[in-house]
Design a protein around this nucleic acid. Sequence first.
DNA 1: GTGAAAGCGCTAACAA
DNA 2: TTGTTAGCGCTTTCAC
Lengths: 349, 349
Amino acid sequence: MARKTNYSSPDKLPDIRTVAALAKVSIATVSRTINDSAQVSDRLSKRVWQAIKQLNYLPNTHARTLVSGRSHLLGIIVENITNPFFPELIQSFEEIAVAHGYEILISSSNSDPAVLSTCVRRLLERKADGVAIMTFGEEEPFIDQIVNRNVPIVLAEFKLDDPKASTILLDYSTGIHEAVQHLAELGHREIAFLAGPHNLHSALTRENDFIAAMRAADLPIQKKWIIECGHTLKSGVTGFERLRKFTAPPTAVICSNDMLAIGVLRAAYMRGMRVPQDLSVVGLDDIDFAEFTLPPLTTIRLSRIDLAHAAFKALCAQIEDPHNPHLQREFLVSTSLVVRGSTAPPPGR
Amino acid sequence: MARKTNYSSPDKLPDIRTVAALAKVSIATVSRTINDSAQVSDRLSKRVWQAIKQLNYLPNTHARTLVSGRSHLLGIIVENITNPFFPELIQSFEEIAVAHGYEILISSSNSDPAVLSTCVRRLLERKADGVAIMTFGEEEPFIDQIVNRNVPIVLAEFKLDDPKASTILLDYSTGIHEAVQHLAELGHREIAFLAGPHNLHSALTRENDFIAAMRAADLPIQKKWIIECGHTLKSGVTGFERLRKFTAPPTAVICSNDMLAIGVLRAAYMRGMRVPQDLSVVGLDDIDFAEFTLPPLTTIRLSRIDLAHAAFKALCAQIEDPHNPHLQREFLVSTSLVVRGSTAPPPGR
DNA sequence: GTGAAAGCGCTAACAA
DNA sequence: TTGTTAGCGCTTTCAC
């Protein structure tokens, strides 16, 4: 049953000493070879690599972290991993991180401050080299813990007056203006907005940008048509139901995210209402699914790739060059409208 | 700008010594208090906790791991994090893991053996206490690495003859039989199957179970109607296109997963074909989205919660009781049909 | 260019 | 019940 165990003693995994012994060098040389941190002669280096291979040696990350103080671990906290926006974001972030020799630790806060707090504590215990908080504005209470420990941090949509913190500003305004403009051009005047939960920064921003865009387009703003929902499929259903109760319901609705919009699509269908003929629907995020809804969703794209890149860049800069006073501390990610099939002129046009 | 730094010296984080000094006990007592690994008198324990709080002390996980040999890290490798099935699985797994004091390290193999290999190496370097490989059958080449290092491992749908490995068997058969039965009862005879990629174990199993179910229902099996696709939205579109080219196309189609089915829904819509009137569609997985497609998707449920529980249980048993020869090494997760709106009698019935 | 040795922060064995 | 001490596996001075 035993596979070839070559050199090492029966049960114990090879460590740096085993390698050193086999290569007939000191452990310092092994370390230098692995990290190519100093000149090691070709002759020795070759012997070391050969021993590493033969032993199938893997350095122990914990030992490395302990002495070097760098864990090569990046934390990313998202709001809710079951909203496809976040896996897509994580995927991009992980790709970049791994390419740069980092590992990522993913946590989902599920919009629960207690959970968020635990996430943060765990990341701190694991000595994350940096933390990206992609919860879009529910983060206030626990940031202190991170910042106090001098861990670089990057936040979406939340400015922090601390040298260790960077911010990614999201320009929803552009995309939302485009969306309102698009609907106005189609002939819509009565446009509703299904907002995200008001405890979310981003939800509020989106809502305000909607109001601003309506104003800019000279369209009437009806308070009752701005409805607070969640950012979930289910709340899209609820939101739609509330909308259709009005005697003169709006002809178009912009949703604070795609999940909401997809919920609306579903609810409209169940009520026999046709999208886009009877109601135009616009989402926000442009998750991969948006292209595959029925009808394909017109939506405001928020690039996960751009967001992930910005987050990584911010963290990396802080980690690698912590004392540079000229570090870029603010990053901007923009949005833009993607027109698909869920928008059309209002009924009777 | 300085926040209250209480006791510790200006820049350095408090360590176990700092706590011991402040509480006027030995570091061993601090360690014992934290781990409540031995009797510590209330008096001292109280002093220790008080010092910990005052210093805002967080134990260093890497140091703990180094000496104890347990990282409290569980790896989970999934096939593709952007398929909603996996985030849903991860969420359940994380919940259980965290509740039991474990952290999880997530990796996406993206069906790339090279990536998978790196994932495995990274997990090994980080000394994961256990690894769940939820890639459903593309794992062969790299399992050795893990098993050789005596790390407990659990695999979906892949049996390994090693005492450190457990398996979660997936009983697709039940659900697929139900689906075929359901369609047969509606009056369908010409049923197609859009299969997953043939390099995936699970895809093959599902396909074979489909064939068996058709046979059991006494329905004709047409080889040309079993089409290999991917497990993605896009390949659902391609799959549908290939299906409709037939002069007498099938009246129903079962898809190897929900993403595929949702792609079919979309493609059918684009071609002006109505689901379920013109074509019945069945998915597999029952991702959260399935309830929100248009029409709501009839699908075979594979519970992520059950799967996550089984995976955790398997790992935990191996970790906590490694030498028990009577450990449960096989777990079963079943499937069942969920009837929604995407199935109906065939046209002309 | 290479090696010896100190020590990262902690747990666990042993003493008291 | 509590303290002392020896490492866990590695990186990093500091000699040579």
